[in-house]
């Protein structure tokens, strides 16, 4: 289980990284912490001709702030986010999710950008960023652009990122003081990929009332009807899952996950309803 031969390029800047990727003509692969790519290389499942190391690109660790948003570079590690290295604009949401990712030794190297670019549906950041209605910053040879998370991810391990593009950062909304969140993950093992994730954000001051179902082996889904139902009631009503909310959620899960079996739907229904209940009791 040793990696196949590849060239290594340590990028010094975003422009340098983009040039190295373009030069690879589709056979170059960007690597951040390497916590996803490393094992795939060792298993020889991935066989890029060139690996472009992003860990030393200063722009990818930027932190910028506007009145209502925070922009972060893609290279912050899970552990840094867990430890509060970024300004807490999500009332503890991001650090809490970060703490639940894999294990400390992985969190010390793995990055939020690497995780999102890899786009495993069971990973935490994809679902979290969808819940926050975050936007993605992408650097292409012809400039910087933005994407929204639900169109960025096409499916498992599949994104709209081109061979010559870089996921460079995220635009996160600042939650209001009254903004609440809840995140319920069902895992068989500590640090294991989730079997189901329910995530809820309730911040009417910012116009963000969002209920998301994740770890569904494809792009996580925003439960629009459940979100609307939650928006019409109070978060306290979610605590005991008011019957109206419960019915809407059940219908929506059954419909959106119709091509999965009953066990799968049950698991996800439970994750979301527990996240709602936790939101209500916060």
């Amino acid at each position: 289980m040793k990696a196949p031969v590849f060239d290594y390029h340590r990028a010094s800047s975003v422009q340098d990284a983009l040039a190295a990727l373009a030069d690879g003509r589709g056979d170059a692969k960007a690597m951040a912490g390497g916590c996803s790519l490393g094992p795939m290389l060792n298993l020889r499942l991935a066989r890029p001709a060139r690996v472009v190391d992003l860990r030393h690109v200063p722009e990818l660790r930027r932190v910028e702030e506007t009145e209502d948003r925070l922009v972060i570079g893609a290279l912050w590690t899970h552990a840094e986010i867990e430890d509060g290295a970024l300004p807490d604009i999500t009332n503890g949401f991001l650090p809490s999710v970060a703490h639940g990712i894999a294990y400390r030794a992985v969190r010390n190297r793995g990055t939020i950008g690497g995780s999102v670019a890899h786009a495993d549906p069971a990973a935490d950041w994809i679902t979290t960023l969808l819940t926050l209605d975050a936007r993605l910053l992408i650097h292409a040879p012809d400039g910087e652009r933005q994407a929204s998370i639900d169109t960025f991810m096409l499916g498992g391990y599949s994104t709209e990122l081109g061979d010559d593009e870089l996921l460079s950062g995220f635009i996160l909304p600042k939650l209001s003081g009254r903004g609440r969140w809840a995140y319920h993950k069902i895992c068989r093992k500590t640090g294991e990929f989730a079997k189901a994730i329910g995530a809820v954000l309730h911040d009417p001051d910012r116009g963000l009332v969002r209920v998301v179902c994740g770890a569904i082996e494809r792009t996580p889904i925003l439960l629009e009807e459940t979100s609307a139902a939650l928006g019409r009631s109070s978060p306290e009503a979610a605590a005991d899952l008011a019957p109206v909310l419960k019915g809407v959620l059940k219908d929506e899960i059954d419909r959106r996950l119709a091509d999965h079996d009953a066990v799968f739907r049950q698991m996800h229904h439970t994750a979301v309803s527990r996240a709602l209940a936790e939101l209500g009791s916060k």
């Binding site: 932190v63 910028e64 702030e65 506007t66 922009v71 430890d83 509060g84 290295a85 933005q146």
Partner: peptide, 16 residues
């Protein structure tokens, strides 16, 4: 834990 990074005020940066 290290202190939180001090963000650059976005007035100075381009933020689409």
């Amino acid at each position: 834990a290290p202190p939180a990074a001090t963000p650059v005020r976005a007035a100075a940066v381009h933020l689409p």
